[in-house]
């Protein structure tokens, strides 16, 4: 595939769109916050499987009568599976109590225990802190590596693109109120890895062209580099999306949000390596001169007093 798309003609509109999206995400993150899953809030979760479709209302009322106010009851995957959540509960025995209660309610029919999860409040806090720390650490390590392998401007551009991706994916999770649990956090970090992958491939080409090409206009050069790598960018995104969709469709409920976060991430990451990272390079004023210093030694240096 040989492309000749004038990406950079759209760089200003893209910047505006990205800014608006980021603004919406940040506003949603501040006011609506993330719908933290059990891993981060602490609490109890019980998943049960009924032999026939389960009567959610009767489960709700029987939980309410037994004093479990605030229990969230919902179907999970199919109408035979029931998910009961008690966020913020502090007792580790609630799960077993609820199962005993519901089993006695449904006397005669077999209720199958799918899973119980209990996360104590301090664990939730720790996981959240550790998760945040890991994200920042991952970003910092990348920045160092790119600064070492490329040049500090590339590192800056890559990190701007990564932060853009992280905020947008978080924003999507916040706006749609999707459950944000540990697996989604893992997905978010994988998005960082993926998006970086893309950004590096593009940056690599930009650097190569800056060194070898006769063209002096950085914007033109970047446009050329983007076109040269576009085929690869699209194919890799496509193959990755193929496996992600199969995970999303077949991987079961537990993997769904993980796959979803990665799907958003791959789309956003592909866009950001084209528009955000390159835009950042242009705004920072990257020119050929920035790369020449790396290889050429300056003999005049020794003449200085």
């Amino acid at each position: 595939m040989i492309f000749n798309v004038d990406f950079m003609a759209w760089r200003k509109p893209a910047l505006v769109v990205s800014s608006i999206l980021i603004l919406i995400s940040v506003v949603s993150l501040v006011f609506k916050e993330l719908n933290y899953g059990l891993d981060f809030t602490g609490g109890t979760l019980v998943e049960l499987s009924y032999p026939e479709s389960a009567d959610l209302n009767s489960i709700r009322s029987s939980l309410k009568n037994a004093g479990y106010a605030g229990a969230q009851v919902a179907n999970f995957g199919s109408n035979q599976e029931v998910l009961i959540k008690l966020p913020g509960s502090l007792s580790d025995t609630l799960g077993a109590e609820i199962i005993t209660l519901l089993k006695s309610d449904a006397a005669g029919s077999e209720i199958d225990l799918r899973r119980i999860e209990y996360v104590g409040p301090q664990i939730g806090d720790e996981l959240r802190d550790d998760g945040g720390l890991a994200t920042i650490l991952a970003l910092a390590f990348m920045m160092l590596y790119i600064a070492f392998r490329f040049q500090s401007m590339f590192a800056g551009a890559a990190v701007v693109a990564l932060i853009h991706d992280v905020i947008l994916v978080l924003g999507i999770f916040s706006i749609f109120g999707l459950d944000f649990d540990l697996t989604v956090l893992a997905a978010l970090l994988a998005v960082i890895g993926y998006s970086l992958n893309d950004t590096i491939v593009v940056s690599d080409r930009i650097r190569e062209n800056l060194r070898s090409d006769t063209e002096d206009n950085t914007t033109e050069l970047i446009n050329k580099s983007l076109n040269q790598t576009l085929g690869r960018t699209l194919i890799t995104s496509l193959t990755t999306l193929l496996v992600l969709f199969s995970l999303f469709l077949m991987g079961g409920e537990f993997i769904k949000n993980f796959a979803l976060a990665l799907i958003f991430g791959v789309v956003v990451g592909t866009y950001s390596s084209i528009y955000i990272a390159s835009n950042a390079l242009i705004i920072m004023g990257l020119t050929k001169d920035h790369l020449k210093v790396e290889n050429v030694e300056n003999p005049d240096h020794y003449d200085l007093p």
Partner: peptide, 15 residues
């Protein structure tokens, strides 16, 4: 590209 992804994986593992 792979090395940077490896960094992410190691950070993930260390959580």
């Amino acid at each position: 590209a792979n090395f940077t992804t490896l960094i992410v994986a190691v950070v993930l593992y260390s959580i």
